[in-house]
Structures are given as structure tokens and as C-alpha cells.
Amino acid sequence: MARHQPIQLGTQIAGYQVEHEIGRGGMSVVYLATDLRLGRAAALKVLAPELTLIDDLRRRFINESRVAAAIDHPHIVPIYASGESDGVLYIAMRYVAGPDLGALLDRDGPLPVTDALGIAAQVASALDAAHENGLVHGDVKPGNILVAASGVGDDPYAYLMDFGLAKPSLDASSTSVGEFVGTLDYVAPEQISGRPVDGRGDLYSLACVVYEVLAGGPVFQRDDDMALLWAHQYDQPPELSGARPGLAPAVDSVMAKALAKASDDRFGSCREFVEELFSAAGGLAS
């Protein structure tokens, strides 16, 4: 895939002035920008110009803004505006001054139990809100969770972002066997095999994230992608209490249920999973 062509600093896009780059992914670049009408900072996400002619990527990018804007939730990044300006597809959203969860893990290592479960609870509430609106996020991972200080005792405040892959629950029409959209370390078995997906697929991905933020590494670690896909579909996950000394063994049965291969064997909601995990952890804050 061609490299992203940078937008010149100072460029104005639909009333937003580009200040500097703050992040990039496989299909987009995010800039800190100034809203020239309201004088506030914003995060301006721009589809890489060389990708704007690819219909599937255009639809995915446009879908992100529509889905996120339709769900009013305190832990989903608010959308200010979106559209196309002089051939540039953009989404303007609230600027969150904090790292994503993946960067936080790279910097600090595994999180304290209370912080990890607090973030999980916030993301769970955002996911359940999406599911109540008939939508599946489809790509829950540390890189799609922004973490900012709440200002209240410096407790972390999480925002779920990047709804570009979101689609209606139980919709497998765009996925055939052996194909999926998502990220390998967090992808649910039904996404891999092309079976219908609902909110329990996001729950599986959230459980993978929780394991990583507490253990310091992905739930399944394999030498190649095919082995990793196999593990998600057929291998039993390792016990979290063995990877995080001092964590109550009761968490293992909770994680096993959240990471069940069959979606019917998982919890009914993300909130239920996190509540059970809180209870099993026994209030430990190590």
C-alpha cells in the first residue's frame, strides 16, 4: 500500500487548521487542528489521499463518523463534523490529551488492577451502548482506546474510538470463511470463520484487551499469523492469575467464560463480564 502523503502544516480543511500530526494508522492520519470558528482544539482524522479512490475504504471511513455520531455516550469520542473538502475526507472530533492504551502499556507495562478494571468498565459501557443500537464495533483493541486523566484523583478516563469497521449485529454478509476484519491479537473466533457476529464478539475482544493490560502481553502469543488464528479458534487461553501474580484465581473462570470459543457460552453483555471480573478480583489493587 502506498505511503500516506503528509498534509502541509497550516493547511485549512473545512474550517480546521492543521497544526501537527498526532497519530496514524493503516488508512488514516490524525492531526491536532484548530477549529477556526470556535477557537478550540480538535483531532482531525483524514483518510490518506491515495486511498480516497478505493470505494470500500471510503465507505468504511464515512461509516465511522456516522456510527460514532449516532451514539451519544460519555466514553465514545464525540464527533464535531465530517465530510469531504477539496477531495479530502475528514472527521473532526474532540481532542483527547492522552495516549492510547497500547502506547500506555508500551510505556508503563501492565496496569494496576484497579486502573485496568476501571478502564474495562468504561469501555464495556460504551460497547453495550453500541450493541443496544444494533451495532458491533468490530475492532476493539488497545490502540482504539484513548486514556486521559479524569481530573478526579488522576483516575484514568477512557474513550472508545474508531468505529470504521462497525456494522449491524449478526451481519456476516461482507465476511466469508477465512476472511475477517479486525486485529489478530483480539479477533473473536466467529470473525475469523465468517460466522455471524454480534456484541459477544466485541466482548471477546475486550477480554483479550483486559488480559493484556493485566498480564503485559496478548492472551495468545504465537510465532505466525496462522498459528494465532488457530489459537483463537481452538486453543484454551492461559490462566490470567498465572500471568499476574497476586491476582485472585477466581478471575480465571470469568476470563474463560468471556473467551469461550462459542459466543453462546460467553456473558450476555460487556458490563456483566466486567462486573463479574471485579467481584472475582476481590478488590485487589496490586
Rank of each mutant, 00 (worst) to 15 (best):
H75Y: 09
D100W: 01
I71D: 14
D108H: 12
L104S: 02
L104C: 04
L105S: 01
H75L: 09
L104T: 07
V88H: 03
L101Y: 01
D72Y: 14
R107V: 05
V88I: 10
A97D: 15
P78E: 15
S65R: 04
L104P: 02
S85I: 09
H75S: 14
D72A: 15
R107M: 09
G98T: 11
D86S: 09
M93E: 06
S65C: 12
E84W: 08
V96F: 06
E84Y: 03
A92M: 03
R94P: 09
G83I: 06
D108P: 01
V67P: 02
P74R: 14
E64Q: 05
L101A: 01
A69Y: 13
H73P: 05
I71S: 08
A81T: 11
A70E: 09
D106T: 07
V96E: 05
I76Y: 05
P78K: 14
A81M: 12
Y90T: 02
V77H: 01
V67R: 01
D106P: 00
A97Y: 11
I79A: 02
G98N: 10
Y95F: 13
G83C: 08
A97P: 03
L104H: 07
I76R: 04
A70Q: 09
A97L: 08
D106F: 08
G83T: 10
A69F: 09
A103Y: 02
L101I: 08
V77W: 00
G98P: 07
A69N: 07
L105Q: 02
A81Q: 15
P78H: 14
L104M: 10
R94H: 07
S85Q: 12
A81L: 15
A68W: 07
R66G: 13
A92Q: 01
I76G: 04
V67S: 00
Y80T: 14
L104K: 03
I79D: 01
G83N: 15
I91C: 15
S65M: 04
S65F: 03
A92L: 07
I91H: 10
G87L: 10
G87P: 13
S85W: 14
P110Q: 06
A69G: 09
D106E: 15
R94V: 14
E84A: 06
I76M: 14
A97T: 08
D100R: 00
D100T: 05
G102E: 11
I79S: 03
I91P: 03
D106S: 12
Y80N: 14
R107S: 13
P99H: 03
D100C: 05
S82T: 14
G102A: 06
H73Y: 15
I79N: 02
R94K: 14
